[in-house]
Amino acid sequence: MLALEKLLESNFPGDLDITSEGTPSTTGWFEVEVNGELVHSKKNGDGFVDSGWKIDRLESAIEKALKLG
């Protein structure tokens, strides 16, 4: 997840609140908030961001939240 965090932070500098944690019993959690709006939550069922189309979908959600904010 560290690589994804770095990618998102470089594409949206200062606009995101990213929290994540790897855990020994699961693959951890990863959440992205924009202006207080949760745009991705692995804990809430959005899943692991592990492919190009999932990154594109997440970046689109971030862009939409930035426009609305």
Rank of each mutant, 00 (worst) to 15 (best):
M1P: 02
L2F: 13
L2N: 13
A3G: 02
A3P: 08
L4D: 03
L4E: 04
E5I: 12
E5A: 14
E5C: 11
E5T: 15
K6S: 10
K6E: 14
L7C: 09
L8R: 12
L8K: 06
E9G: 04
S10F: 01
N11V: 01
F12A: 02
P13C: 06
P13E: 11
P13T: 12
P13F: 07
D15K: 15
D15N: 12
L16S: 09
D17Q: 11
D17A: 14
D17E: 13
D17M: 03
D17I: 06
D17P: 03
I18D: 04
I18S: 00
I18W: 08
I18C: 01
I18L: 03
T19G: 01
T19H: 07
T19K: 15
S20R: 15
S20A: 11
E21S: 02
G22W: 00
G22K: 09
G22T: 09
T23N: 07
T23H: 12
P24W: 10
T27A: 13
T27P: 08
T27F: 10
T27K: 09
G28A: 00
G28K: 14
W29R: 11
W29H: 13
W29E: 15
F30I: 03
F30P: 02
E31C: 10
V32T: 03
V32H: 02
E33I: 05
G36S: 02
E37C: 10
E37A: 10
L38I: 07
L38S: 09
V39K: 05
V39P: 04
H40T: 11
H40A: 13
H40W: 15
S41V: 08
K43C: 05
N44F: 10
D46N: 15
D46R: 05
D46G: 08
V49Q: 08
D50I: 02
G52L: 12
G52M: 10
G52D: 12
W53N: 01
W53L: 12
W53T: 07
K54I: 02
I55A: 01
D56Q: 08
D56S: 14
D56L: 09
R57D: 06
L58G: 06
L58I: 05
E59N: 04
S60T: 02
S60A: 13
S60E: 07
A61M: 09
I62A: 04
I62R: 00
E63D: 07
E63R: 15
K64D: 08
K64T: 05
K64A: 10
A65R: 01
A65Y: 10
L66A: 01
L66P: 04
L68F: 03
G69S: 07
